[in-house]
């Protein structure tokens, strides 16, 4: 499903990802943990196609060369990024946005647009599952939403777009217990044999709800350890340890 080999990414000559390798199979849930500045958000940004990075290496997604695609082509190919800080878009209605997104992806795949009625019913069902205020559908995208509402709105978009691979960038941060469990339920509900998840998090809390297959530790721009859920617990108890001396791990 997703194959990353020797991925590097720099901003203004400053190297953030330094030869990252990762393989994610269909239906698998992988977690990436790591200290601040390890490159977690850069990884999600590069995978989603954000401008401003010099990138090398290969990323293959469903047999496509992901790095050659525009952000919208990546979405049409089945990639979804849940933002750590979802963008507020005043003046653009949430329902209009969601429907435009769903139909844009359908159009790119050669599928007919979904009609307004079917779309609305579907959106309302998904919102009820996420315990979202239906009023949020008629408001502007994320504008004036609370932190929890923004994160639920990300999961709502994911539920409507039904991606093959969802990258969740610290979706659990800043959530209270109720919001966390609603978001976690929403993620769990999307688990499917053909759908993979890449969860970036600081906290093992979310992993009580969404059981991962593999836990990776990202540090200094590359994966330095991989293991099962027990690795997350070990990190929680012992921390990531002192920073590696400069030079180690570099060519």
């Amino acid at each position: 499903m997703l194959h990353i080999a020797n991925l590097t990414a720099s901003v203004d000559g400053h190297e953030i990802l330094r030869g990252l390798d990762l393989d994610l199979g269909p239906g698998e849930v992988h977690v990436i943990m790591g200290p601040n500045g390890a490159g977690k958000s850069t990884l999600s940004a590069v995978l989603a196609g954000r401008d401003g990075y010099e990138v090398s290496g290969t990323v293959t997604f469903n047999d496509a060369d992901l790095l050659a695609l525009t952000p919208e082509e990546r979405a049409a190919a089945g990639l979804f990024l849940a933002f750590q800080y979802p963008t507020e878009i005043p003046g653009v209605g949430n329902m209009y946005f969601l429907r435009t997104a769903v139909n844009a992806v359908r159009e790119a795949r050669g599928e007919p647009p979904v009609d307004a009625r079917t779309f609305l019913d579907e959106a309302r069902d998904r919102m009820a599952e996420l315990k979202m205020d239906p009023e949020l559908l008629s408001r502007a995208v994320n504008a004036g939403f609370s932190g929890g509402e923004k994160k639920r709105n990300e999961i709502l978009q994911m539920a409507m777009l039904q991606p093959d691979l969802a990258i969740l960038d610290e979706t659990d941060s800043g959530l209270d217990i109720d919001a966390l469990s609603a978001v976690a339920d929403g993620i769990e509900r999307l688990r499917a044999p053909t759908r993979s998840l890449l969860i970036i998090t600081h906290y093992p809390r979310l992993l009580e709800h969404v059981r991962p297959d593999v836990v990776h530790v990202l540090r200094d721009g590359r994966i330095v350890r991989s293991g099962g859920l027990e690795l997350a617990h070990e990190l929680e108890a012992a921390g990531y340890g002192p920073a590696q001396p400069t030079g180690i791990g570099r060519p």
């Binding site: 401008d51 525009t70 919208e72 933002f83």
Partner: peptide, 15 residues
């Protein structure tokens, strides 16, 4: 807002 353009594009909406 470039950030908003990017956000919409990641949802499959052409630039």
């Amino acid at each position: 807002d470039d950030e908003a353009v990017f956000y919409l594009r990641t949802r499959g909406i052409p630039e």
